[in-house]
Design a protein around this nucleic acid. Structure first.
Lengths: 347, 347
DNA sequence: CTTCAAATTGGAAACGCTTTCATGTATGTT
DNA sequence: AACATACATGAAAGCGTTTCCAATTTGAAG
């Protein structure tokens, strides 16, 4: 009984218009008189008709769908980015197709060929993901703009913060307060794969220390995963009683900083009186932890990236899109001083 | 110079096979001899050809794409769910299209008609989202299975935890320890829209208290948003000096519990010696906070929901899919006792 | 060496729109 | 009033697969 789902043809019939006009009316493309538009819309509503994306895409080459590739969604930084992207895309009437790479390293390749390339996407936003030049070329070859977030992508647009500088400034903040015993907890090497972010931040630390002519025991350069839990454990090792403790810790991310603060508390160390902690990120929990950090506003970065790529898309039709030189944009950060950092305790 | 992107026709030519056979070989549908398959695949690889989703979808009616609607991605619970869903879908070769509703209430309607219904999706997983019966019918009418997570959806499958029971048990845990002065911080009414979760958990608290013949001042029934920050502020009010303090707090979510713990610390209250705190969720930070909670494993829930819906999809072709009675499944939780709860302090 | 069922294959008709092109028609100009 | 211009509209040609159907091959069994 339940007939076939209504097609545009049915709408045309019911409204007394041609298929072409109905398409224009509903798709909002060509010029249609207000009267016809209403006619078409009413008929569509009556039939419960909606345009089929598949058919539209096939015919027009436009998908209204943007792919977002993130290492993981359940990490604050990435989910904030996705949130920012999502809000812009919905606004613009675009779908967002989400790909997570880190659950299974082997999926990474699959994702690219099987999903990204299958022409379902109009563009791709790759977060903290290192695509090879050839992968990018593949994408660009089928006229899909690519935008990197969290690091430069060879040959593609990108937006990122200056990780080296941030790390250096964070360290210098501690040095400026008078600290001379500073430790760093950075990302483990295994996380270096994408954009070498942990490495970059560590360099910032090292250079700042070096410039200040400060040295530190080798084991004050710790690594852990980027989680609170992982860093909590690491920091416990670092702060264990019976050894020389640093008076300040520069954590490569806010979540790591939280872990360090929690660990410090477990040892009865007060922050910042006994131990200063600084992070990088701008995590929402920074507030209750009173964490001093560099806010890099990932939500804003996501929104910005989305806007950039949308602007690019709206520009022209896919095939005649201009291929400008890749633009690597630096996203501004904000230094947020709270009360997790202070002058070191008196000797 | 860069010719048109290769189509299946080109592959057919290059491989010496017919279009039909190439389609079968690459799509993995009908039966194809091993020889032909290899021929087709080699030719496709040589031309850098991949099937077009749009065309495939149009012709087959299958999208290999599942929509996931969540209130927000940047909240631990939801992002964990999405993570679980994502990992299952990738495994199965399905795309995941993400919609977030809460950034702008007005988008909610748009999302449904403009996105969900436009036949781009094979199925929809709605998280903590209350669809009206008619909305669900629309979805089902176009043969799109719908699955609710976090609450029952009228007429659709769903998977959820028993919020009332959980809340009751959490409260009873505190009562069992000997607490008589128990406060509850639940979700604000404005968040009741979807599935009345805050309300349900509050009832669990109230019923448990009532059964134990315990009373409490009206203002020990606090509400806040579901965030750490928000609850931190709320808890500060609750624990403010110079008033009768509860000896235990049941927070409606782990994040709220963290906020309460942080607030307690600011007042110099030790957890659990001076104040017991219990939550619900199984948040990863529960570990470092030592939080006693009910782990409802959102990642697992997501994965489970994904598997269920995939099983449903693989079953038959969209149109002949059997319309079974809606199945509301209860997802198991795990009581995790850590050290945020203990017997109340001596009078 | 037949015979028959099962496996493979190719031709061609969908799938449901968008868009170009050509043709009117309303609007504005001098 | 005559002519140019912009807007509206319909017919029809794709868009790139999948899949039905019929034809052909293959393989096993007799």
């Amino acid at each position: 009984m339940d007939k076939k789902v209504a097609g545009i043809k049915d709408v045309a019939e019911l409204s007394g218009l041609s298929i072409a006009t109905v398409s224009r009316a509903l798709g909002g493309k060509g010029s249609v008189s207000a009267k016809s538009r209403k006619l078409a819309q009413d008929a569509a509503a009556e039939l419960g008709f909606v345009l089929s994306y598949a058919a539209s895409s096939l015919a027009s080459g436009r998908n209204h769908n943007i792919g977002v590739v993130v290492p993981a969604v359940n990490r604050w930084f990435f989910s904030s980015l996705v949130d920012g992207i999502s809000s812009e895309l919905i606004e613009a009437g675009y779908d967002l197709t989400l790909y997570t790479t880190s659950q299974n390293e082997s999926h990474r390749a699959t994702i690219l060929t099987d999903f990204l390339l299958r022409k379902r996407l109009d563009a791709v936003i790759a977060v903290s993901l290192e695509l090879t030049e050839s992968e990018i070329q593949q994408l660009l070859a089928i006229h899909r703009p690519v935008m990197g977030v969290g690091g430069a992508l060879p040959g593609a647009d990108s937006i990122h913060v200056n990780d080296f500088q941030l790390a250096k400034m964070a360290t210098e903040h501690l040095i400026g307060l008078g600290h001379t015993h500073i430790a760093h907890i950075g990302g483990a090497n295994e996380y270096d794969a994408d954009f070498k972010l942990p490495l970059t931040r560590r360099s910032g630390f090292e250079v700042a220390m070096q410039e200040a002519k400060l040295s530190y025991p080798a084991d004050w350069l710790q690594t852990s995963d980027f989680t609170v839990n992982g860093t909590y454990a690491t920091a416990k090792g670092l702060l264990a009683a019976g050894r020389t403790r640093p008076t300040a810790i520069f954590a490569a991310s806010d979540e790591m900083a939280f872990g360090a603060i929690m660990a410090a508390r477990d040892f009865g160390l007060r922050v910042p009186e006994d131990l200063s902690v600084i992070g990088i990120d701008g995590h929402e929990l920074g507030e209750v932890f009173g964490l001093t950090t560099f806010d890099q506003n990932p939500r804003g970065q996501g929104a910005h990236a989305a806007r950039r790529i949308l602007a690019h898309l709206e520009q022209q039709s896919p095939s005649e899109r201009v291929q400008h030189a890749p633009l690597a944009e630096e996203f501004p950060t904000r230094f947020v001083v709270r009360h997790s950092t202070a002058v070191p305790p008196p000797q």
